Structure formats: structure tokens, C-alpha cells
Computed example of a mutant assay.
Amino acid sequence: MPKVISIINLKGGVGKTTITVALAEFLAIEHNKRVLVIDLDPQTNSTVALIGEDEWTKRNQNGQTLHALFKDHIDDTYTFEIESSIVRKTSNLHGGLDTLHLLPSSLDFVKIQDRLIHIWQTALIRPFDVLKNAVNQQLENYDIVLIDCPPNLGIVTQNGLNISDWYLIPTIPDHLSTYGIPQIISSVKNFNRKKSDGEVKLLGVIASMYRSNVNRHNLTLRSLESQVQQGLLPRLFETRIPLASKAADATYFDAEGINTLKQKYGNNGDYLYQSFQRLAEELQTYVQI
């Protein structure tokens, strides 16, 4: 069975999708891992970064996204098929990576958010079991599964947590971005009481969009390190993901002339590339893929 990791922060714009996609690509290319990205975020950023807008539009129209899965359980219909919905060759690197697969999201998720709580009435299952029931038999095909969660702790995020071994919290090292970390930890602990097959553990916090010359970033990192020493956090990843325009560019699927990780993530003496390279190595050390 794979190692399954949900990636969560209650605040948007903290580099969650960039880290998800970069980890997936580095693990697939440099470490020969079979990777599945599950995009649960209605913003669909990981989806578009891995397959582009044109392919996403086609799949969305054909009901080959996770929106169709959840809508089926609300409406008691049977349109979603897991086999045809998993995209089995993704990324703009090397013309697509055979070992990097995607279960895409949809902007239409927003339309059904308020109805998800009623799933138990129509489907007779717990609302947070929908994803688990759909993907359980597929997971054995992968070494690692990365779940890009929406910036909340609602039913969709709980579906990700329900199949996860760990969760990661990427954050900009400032007060506003780290403010919700205790709430995330508390909510996941409460959710663990509902799980029937083991708890989801916090793997750690990753500092993203980091600027070494910004005093508040360094002060926040020291505060997070203090929380690790106090046992409030299991770890703060040693790798810092720097603030770099190349990181945003890396999520643009239609970029031309991109064939290697260094071309895609190279910036300022390849510091961004080296940071993601170290992050992928550090992650494997902790989860023992």
C-alpha cells in the first residue's frame, strides 16, 4: 500500500499547490516513484498545472472529475467511473510522465458544497467515506499519494484525511499564515475519533515562500522551532522553499521548451530547484517510501 499524505492549510496562497505538484514531479522523475495526485481543491490548481485547461475542460464536461463522484452520491446517480477518471500521463515534463497520475478536481465543486452533508441520506454512507470507497482498490498501484486539500476542514478535506496516513502543513512563515495551525491540529485530532482504520498523523510544517532577509519570517521560524521543542509540533522541515517567481511559473502547464526539472524549477542559481530536490529527499526519510 502507498504512503498517503494530505496537504492542508486554512489560508490560501501559501504555496500548497506548488509544493504538491513539485513533490509529485521530483518523486516521479528523480526517485522513480509511482505517484498519484488527488486534487480535492475546487480551485483545481493542481489539476490545471498537471494536465492544462483544455484537457481539464474536456474531462469536466465528460464527468471525469471528483465533482461527479460526490454529485453521484448526493443525487443517487451513477455517472462517475474511477478507471476513466484517473489521468495516467500528466505533467508538461518530457511530454508527460507515465508514473505521475492525477484524479482531477472541478470548479463545479463549489455548487454542491452545501449539499455534501446530505450524502448519508441518499448514499447511506458517511459523507467522509465517499473518496475512500471510490479509490481503495486503486491505491495499491502507487508508492505515494499526495492530496491537495481545499483551504478548509469541511467534508471534502475530511475525505482526504480519511484515506491518509499523514498530513502536511505548508505555510508562509508569518503570523497570518501560521495562525490556523493549532485549529488544524485540533480538528484532525477530533476527526481521528471517527476513523476506523488508524489515525492521521501530522508529518510536519513546511516553510514556503520564505525570504531569508525578512525579519518576521525568521522570527516565525524560531517560534515554530520552539513549538517543536515543546512537543506541540512533530517537526519543522529543514528545507525552506524560497519565494521565487519561477515557483509560480512552474504551475503553468503550457510553458514551452520545458523538458527537465532544472528547466522548470531553476532560479537564482538553481536554489529553487535544489530546495524542492531536498524537500523530496527529506519527505522520503520521514515516511520511508
Score class of each variant (00 low, 15 high):
Q43H: 11
Q43M: 08
T44L: 08
L50T: 08
L50H: 01
E53G: 05
D54C: 02
E55M: 08
W56R: 06
T57S: 10
K58A: 11
N62E: 15
G63E: 09
Q64C: 05
A68L: 01
F70G: 06
D72Q: 03
I74R: 01
D75Y: 00
D76N: 09
T77L: 06
Y78R: 11
T79N: 14
F80C: 07
E81D: 15
I82Q: 05
I82Y: 05
E83S: 12
S84N: 14
S85T: 12
V87C: 10
K89N: 12
T90K: 00
L93T: 13
G96C: 11
D98S: 14
D98T: 15
L100A: 10
L100Q: 01
H101Y: 07
P104R: 00
S106L: 04
S106K: 02
S106V: 08
L107K: 08
V110T: 10
K111N: 13
L116A: 12
I117W: 05
T122F: 01
L124C: 00
L124F: 00
I125S: 04
I125Y: 00
R126A: 05
D129M: 09
D129F: 03
L131H: 09
L131M: 09
Q138N: 10
L139S: 08
E140K: 14
N141P: 09
D143Q: 04
I144V: 15
